[in-house]
């Protein structure tokens, strides 16, 4: 059994689908933070069989919860203070994402005007569809 020490103050992202932790790591730009970050892959889970977990020693305002909601709003966000869970945040699909994903449409104005922010808006909640604010191209993950 592998033991990873708990964190005193920060957040724990639990119930990440197995294999998706690194995606989240990239989207949250965790490679750029100086704080302690622990990634646990393929932890056993009663609910999911296997899951990934990320523990981050940081303040809640340092993490973009919208990005997590966009990737998977079933992920549990536990807020830790003094080593204890003080809050569980509910995530929603954010209405708008700025500079999180990029428009891949080669005909989009963002392809030639580099200074424009890449903005996506949630156009269909039922299907979790995001479209580029400018060209309305649907975002596809692959």
């Amino acid at each position: 059994m592998l033991n990873i020490s708990g964190i005193e103050n920060g957040i724990v992202l639990d119930h990440i689908p197995a294999g998706k932790a690194m995606d989240l790591y990239r989207y949250l730009h965790l490679g750029n933070v100086d704080n302690q970050v622990a990634i646990i892959k393929n932890a056993s889970s009663q609910l999911m069989g296997k899951k990934d977990i990320i523990k981050i020693e940081c303040g809640l305002d340092e993490i973009d919860l919208d990005v997590i909601g966009f990737i998977n709003n079933k992920i549990t966000v536990n807020v830790i203070q003094d080593g204890k869970i003080v809050e569980k945040k509910r995530l929603h699909h954010p209405k708008r994402l700025t500079n999180v994903i990029r428009c891949k449409n080669p005909r989009c104005i963002t392809s030639i005007e580099q200074e424009l922010p890449h903005v996506f808006v949630l156009t269909d909640k039922a299907t979790n569809t995001y479209r580029c604010l400018y060209c309305e191209e649907k975002y596809t993950r692959h």
């Binding site: 449409n105 005909r107 005007e113 060209c135």
Partner: peptide, 25 residues
């Protein structure tokens, strides 16, 4: 020719902008 260009213009414009065709959009 680029899709969304007139919309980008409308965000900064102080006069009405009409999209007269933006790519295949």
């Amino acid at each position: 020719p680029k899709e969304g260009a007139p919309f980008v213009a409308s965000l900064k414009s102080s006069i009405p902008v009409i999209n007269a065709g933006d790519g295949g959009h």
